[in-house]
Write a protein that binds this DNA or RNA. Structure first.
Lengths: 128, 128
DNA sequence: TAATTGATTTACGTAAAAGTCAATAAAATC
DNA sequence: GATTTTATTGACTTTTACGTAAATCAATTA
């Protein structure tokens, strides 16, 4: 595994702009190290970026992505804190299950829509 | 099935504001009929609203939701048009499959995070 | 009939998530 | 060593998806 990535390498790999990556750094979702002024991204930063973009695709806001990334981290604090963390995890799971259901429903409608198209194509061929 | 719903009935059922519903009307995603000035929403408008909100939960923009709703409609036009429609449907399916994959990945990370929490809880109990 | 309630229209405001641009600065290449 | 190239910083702008507020109208209730 490589030690560092440059910002342009990451923009190319993930199809985002440098502005976007810097925005995530401003938001403290990623914390690349510096050599002089230039940013050096470690593999862990790359993983974080991947997780952020995954969250974006699912329609989570930056604040929500921050929460999700928080729960990925090693748990610390006393019992109460950790139990609270488990509740948060279950909450997120519920949201994800809702999204899964939404996908299933949309997929079903897509199936129906495609069938209609195929039927219509058949009709057109008969009427010619 | 009821013939009409008022705007407030829909806001209560779906937990959105009247502003939101009117915004979707402005965007021509919904076209309620009128009695005088007041809007009357038919069951079909209600279904559309449900589809819009489903799209929102999945992180689709209004423009994307418009596209999705377009393909649900009865197919019209000649062969080329309909084949193009089928391609669009397949494109949307790919996006949905990506989202499904994203959900699966996130779920897996949640599982790992929860396990870490449980482990940490066990540690805390031993050390007391 | 007066007053309250609910809906509409119009218009301006706003937060989130970047895009864009200009002015540097540092690095790499010729 | 001059000059492209690449990266940074900061500021301003834009887009999306509504929020909010004021004025108006219509219908219901007191």
């Amino acid at each position: 595994m490589r030690e560092f990535y440059t910002i342009t390498e990451l923009t190319k790999e993930f199809g985002v702009s440098t502005r976007t990556i810097r925005f995530y750094e401003d938001e403290e979702l990623i914390k690349p190290v510096r050599r002089g002024r230039t940013r050096l991204f470690r593999p862990s930063d790359r993983v974080l970026l991947k997780q952020i973009l995954r969250g974006k695709r699912l329609g989570f806001s930056i604040a929500e992505i921050r929460e999700i990334i928080e729960v990925y981290k090693a748990p610390s604090g006393e019992e109460g804190q950790i139990k609270l963390m488990i509740e948060r995890i279950n909450q997120k799971r519920k949201e994800l299950e809702q999204k899964r259901q939404d996908i299933d429903d949309t997929m079903r409608e897509m199936d129906g829509a495609e069938e209609n198209c195929i039927e219509r194509l058949a009709e057109l061929r008969v009427s010619q």
